[in-house]
Design a protein around this nucleic acid. Structure first.
Lengths: 183, 183
DNA sequence: ACCTGAACACCGTTCAAGT
DNA sequence: ACCTGAACACCGTTCAAGT
């Protein structure tokens, strides 16, 4: 995973990530220069590690996305297929609501072959859950995992808070119903 | 609608809109300064007419949104409720795919009371179609129009072209199925 | 009343010079 | 190899001065 680097470079990289996480949580469009400054490095150094804003944000979310992806097989093993799918969506909703950047990152990943490293596993996780549902006859046949991820994009446009939570639940219900066999 | 203005101000406003339409179509994040320059006005003038980028983009889409809103009653009068709903969604998809900015604008409108002038009619149009479906028993009861608009947000994240068209159709099918009575 | 355009603080990005 | 930080072209925004 982590390519070997010179010790100082590795330290800089980690400090940039740490500061960036805090800065972007506080204000989602904090400037890269200001992050570099807060991390105590020159702008060129930040640029060397993360050639674009996207690359930086992606690096931040990579860990959490990996968690999410890893959850899919676990849920599939412990629950009936349709329940597993719903539970995984709810977890996705949780991430969606606290991390707004996710939408933009996933959308970018879709259009950039290099970033499939992140998008691919997400789609894989959904596909796993969908195919299980399909096998048990609890959803209609042939539903595309990429389509479903795109459809779920509403999640990161929902405001946080009580009302948002209720809204996410309602919409999730609509989507789940849509996946089921045609009436 | 149009407040009376001095003739030169009105002309400037219109030329800015015309140039902005072209510039933003060519490159969605053309700078405001460059638009002002292309329109032959000072940056202050552009700023006076449109105090933010959002305000400018919203003004551009207002006309097309009005068209869309006006279409709802017409469709409802000419088709069975469920068909009317689907046709309206397809029209929305068309706008979505050619005009990317729409997503951002509608999202902003949602959070900004002043802009409800645009968001409200959109929701109203959807509500009209939904209620007709509900009355005829072709969808489940109590579906929220704002929820549905949010759910349809995937439309402006779809790439243009043949494949995007097919994708929009598939996803629309999922949504329509989700709206129907619970199995 | 409206427009102009210089000016301000800041942005992303680059790259020669250092270690 | 990697970092620094000055520098570049440009950004959104403001506002005194003009008509």
């Amino acid at each position: 995973m982590n390519k070997p680097r010179r010790a100082d470079a590795q330290q800089n990289r980690e400090r940039i990530l740490k500061i960036a996480r805090e800065a972007l949580a506080a204000s989602p469009d904090a400037s890269l220069n200001s992050i570099a400054k807060a991390a105590g490095v020159g702008p060129g150094t930040l640029y060397r590690h993360f050639p674009s804003r996207e690359a930086l944000v992606l690096a931040l979310y990579r860990h959490e996305i990996q968690q999410l992806v890893g959850l899919a097989p676990a849920l599939a093993a412990q629950h009936p297929p349709l329940t597993a799918l719903r539970l995984w969506f709810e977890r996705l909703a949780h991430y969606g609501r606290i991390k707004r950047g996710l939408a933009h990152v996933l959308h970018a990943a879709m259009n950039d072959g290099v970033l499939r490293e992140t998008y691919g596993p997400m789609v894989g996780a959904i596909d796993l859950l969908l195919r299980a549902c399909e096998a048990s006859g609890s959803i209609r046949k042939g539903v595309n995992a990429e389509d479903v991820l795109l459809l779920m994009g509403f999640l990161w446009r929902i405001e946080p808070g009580r009302e948002g939570e209720a809204r996410a639940k309602r919409l999730l219900g609509l989507v789940m119903n849509g996946l089921q066999s045609e009436s």
